[in-house]
Design a protein around this nucleic acid. Sequence first.
DNA 1: ACCTGCATGTAAGTCGTTACATGATTGA
DNA 2: TCAATCATGTAACGACTTACATGCAGGT
Lengths: 185, 185
Amino acid sequence: MARSSQTQMAVLGALSIEPMTAYALRETIRDVLGHFWSESFGQIYPTLHALEEEGHVRRRGGARARSSEFVITESGTARLIELLSEPARKVPARDGLMLRLFFGRTLGPDRCRDLLQQARAAAEGRLTEYEALLARLEAEEGDTPDWPYIRTTLRAGIHHSRSTIAWADESLAALSALPGGSPSP
Amino acid sequence: MARSSQTQMAVLGALSIEPMTAYALRETIRDVLGHFWSESFGQIYPTLHALEEEGHVRRRGGARARSSEFVITESGTARLIELLSEPARKVPARDGLMLRLFFGRTLGPDRCRDLLQQARAAAEGRLTEYEALLARLEAEEGDTPDWPYIRTTLRAGIHHSRSTIAWADESLAALSALPGGSPSP
DNA sequence: ACCTGCATGTAAGTCGTTACATGATTGA
DNA sequence: TCAATCATGTAACGACTTACATGCAGGT
């Protein structure tokens, strides 16, 4: 369990879909899991080496080659199942937007409204993105056994974005009653 | 800027409401901001010392006393406004539940349904809590100038919990079609 | 000839938690 | 008097990010 089992989980998961290079791994994680997961090179390479040493992945295309793909092994699949079965570790909450709004009196109503507008716009953008992705993937991957699960995560994004938009609208309406003003000490 | 400006923001924010000891600070942050923020002793004490050195907080009740309260100074308030005005730094996404569901085929439908049930139950619990808190605070603090802002963060929790419940229900219905089974390699 | 993208890695630094150590006060 | 709670801190560790260093391949 040399490196973070979190990273191992994402890496093994991605390799369970198809073999790829470390570089492609990072791109895939960014593009495909990006809405709820992230990994950096600094994590991926050491993790990959550790996994190789433990026999959970195998190098293909030359150990010293400049473009070697990693393939998940049987023990790697077992390890992945083990990791996925562990309870998700709870990441300590740290929501900068909420903290700023909580101390909104100090920050001032105008800036708070700005923050809400920004949050709304960001959520709107994500919503559009998720909906487009859902439609595209429904057509492309609709038959694969992975699809129901992938769809579930996408639907989470859609639900969440919508609720953020509704909350922002409601809050903007509520705060519109307040007189504008700069930060008040 | 010795210690994390994030922690400074939370600490100064809490002290802007009322002076308190480091110990009480941690309790307050846990109890009041706990839904979207967390701080540990290991952060709070050094941060407080740094803030004292910079003149942003002042000790009251004896420098060497065993129970000294910290009071925010004028420069501390200015610093707080400055910190609140900074753009919220985005924390890298790491949602263990989504990752598990994404690789749900490997984890197996049964366990995925378990995860969804758990997520639903947790959201339900938070929703009840937020609603009770909202009603209580509405009565107690409804007139204070801080209330509209605090209310906004509480409403965010309510919206978010509801959307999680709706998503979980929808997903459970969608996954109920799948045949049960253990992890499939 | 040069720039961009693919590819592999390391080192340093940040941020934060957990566990430990220590002691005063207070209520049962 | 004994346990719980209040109170203050430090040390060790863990997880990640960023920035840096390096080089090849392919297109213009």
